[in-house]
């Protein structure tokens, strides 16, 4: 009896949950479907069954030089992440394993820099970029993205590093490991899962960044987020093509995101929710 009713409620919950999930996913799903339609189909009323043509994807790649912003996105996201890790790993290591009475304050202060509204420094950053010739360059934007995500990277690494028991590092020291050996053979292998998660989340954040990329690029260094934003202008309005460009812009990150749900929670809440 109890079993029958619990099965029935499971069916009910399952239907409800799937209904919610499909509703939320629908805009993405419909974009994917539209990207596989012809332009004619795309504007001729609601239909979930496309003609499965790749022509829009081809058109985006040939007519709009899709690969340039795509390459820029990859370079910016990966480059800024690597830069951030180079700076953040030693800092997080020091704060996790050799904390001082200021460590907590330093971490809180780092967090506070993340809370500075981007638009507040739009003017100076814009002027600096104009005057130093960094405008519309990959290097300038890479550094920008590194700086805005650095606090999250330090925090995430810090929370991961803190989970490595200090006794293990002490054991390495007792076993005759110098600092270099300690980092190379003990800390790094144990920290790699955490570093990988941090990297994944940061790539996602950098890839999706849409304020600075739009402000500081025009054509040369524009990543996908800026490229897609330019589609809002009337001459870019072809439904199927727009959908294809959107799908290509979000697909890599969507798939990465699916693998990083747990890390996402930790990273975006600065370890406050695990």
């Amino acid at each position: 009896m109890a079993r029958a009713s619990s099965t029935r409620s499971k069916i009910g919950y399952t239907i409800a949950a799937w209904a919610v999930a499909l509703t939320l996913f629908f805009p993405i799903l419909y974009t994917i479907i539209t990207s596989l339609k012809t332009e004619q189909e795309a504007i001729s009323g609601f239909s979930l069954i496309p003609s499965f043509t790749w022509s829009s994807f081809e058109a985006v790649q040939t007519q709009n030089d899709y690969w340039k912003p795509f390459t820029n996105s990859v370079i910016l996201a990966v480059g800024s992440t690597i830069l951030a890790l180079i700076v953040a790993i030693p800092a997080a290591w020091a704060m996790a394993f050799s904390p001082t009475k200021h460590t907590k304050n330093i971490l809180m202060w780092m967090l506070s820099t993340k809370m500075m509204p981007a638009v507040a420094v739009l003017v100076p950053i814009y002027l600096i970029f104009l005057r130093t010739g960094l405008m519309d360059t990959r290097i300038g934007l890479t550094v920008m993205l590194m700086l805005i995500n650095l606090p999250i990277v330090v925090w995430m690494l810090y929370t991961y590093f803190r989970e490595i028991p200090g006794e293990i590092l002490e054991a390495a020291r007792m076993d005759g490991a110098g600092l270099r050996d300690e980092i190379l053979y003990v800390l790094t292998p144990m920290a790699i899962p955490g570093i990988a998660s941090t990297m994944l989340l940061n790539v996602i954040l950098a890839w999706n960044e849409a304020f600075w990329t739009i402000q500081l690029t025009t054509t040369n260094a524009a990543p996908l987020s800026a490229f897609i934003a330019s589609f809002s202008s009337p001459q870019g309005l072809f439904w199927a093509k727009l959908s294809a460009a959107s799908v290509m812009a979000i697909a890599p990150i969507l798939i990465m995101g699916w693998f990083s749900q747990k890390q996402l929670v930790r990273g975006l809440t600065f370890g406050a929710v695990k």
Partner: peptide
């Protein structure tokens, strides 16, 4: 510690 020539066994074992 690395140069003292001592070995230590920890409460948590501290295995790698």
């Amino acid at each position: 510690p690395a140069k003292r020539g001592l070995a230590m066994v920890f409460q948590s074992y501290a295995l790698y």
